[in-house]
Amino acid sequence: MNQNTAIRTLLAFYTALFLAFLYGPFVVMAIISFQQGPEGGPQFPIIEWSTFWYQHVLGFAPPSRVAPLPIGEALTRSLTLAFATMVVSTVLGTLTAQAFRTQFKGSGFVFYLVVLGMMVPGVLLGLGMALVSSQFGIDRNWWSTAFVLHVVYTYPFAFLVMLAIFNRFDKSIEEAAWALGVPPGRTFRKITFPMIFPGVLSAMLFAFTLSYDEFPRTLFTGGREVTMPIAIYGTFAVEIHPNLFAFGVLTTLFSFALLTVYGVLMSASVRRARVRATGMQEDVA
């Protein structure tokens, strides 16, 4: 037993170190984002604490030799692309997972064909698509060639999430609805979908996040109008500035805000259901 406690303490200590390792660069990034600007570079020491780079990101800073990040356009493109990808891949994933609820010939083939989409490295897929479009004279755009590849990448994730959800879904509930005379389409809308909605939501979250941060596929197929990750990748070639870090901190905070809203909404809907039920109970009593 003592030995066990020792192991537990050791592992807890290790896990703390591990988290420090994960968060280390993040903390450094946050510190450097307050570097003095525009002369201060993305390194220590901090010349002087300032919020210059935040103003720079948001477009309030006076013009300087550091080009502003293309926040407006690139960010809008990225968000639009992520949203479209999310919708399409969730729909595809749900349809395919629905088909997998019954046994059919060739299910193994379809399963691996879909999962292949997340297994093939982005750079290969980007290259393949670039070759296809250059040979067939298809224009490369973030909303066409890049978009279809984003779906190829996120659809398998949505599919796997939905497959796991359906595995736990009690089929007799749908059968009960059919037996009541309700056709399958209506049953799906009224019964199945509301029940699997939390799963759909997490599939959507997955797809959105992956697409928003995607860049190897977009790099070759996105065309001239860049998305946010491509814009950041572009700065690799030239000098990087702390404005990138300020941007990183801002997006992280934004994501946190979204996550909080999501959490609050979820717990609120749970609470509402509970209140409704107990309220009714009091009526009866």
Binding site: W178, A179, L180
Partner: peptide, 11 residues
């Protein structure tokens, strides 16, 4: 199909 039979089932 079950939804056109007009039967009831109690599972």
């Amino acid at each position: 199909p079950p939804y056109l039979r007009g039967l009831g089932i109690v599972q």
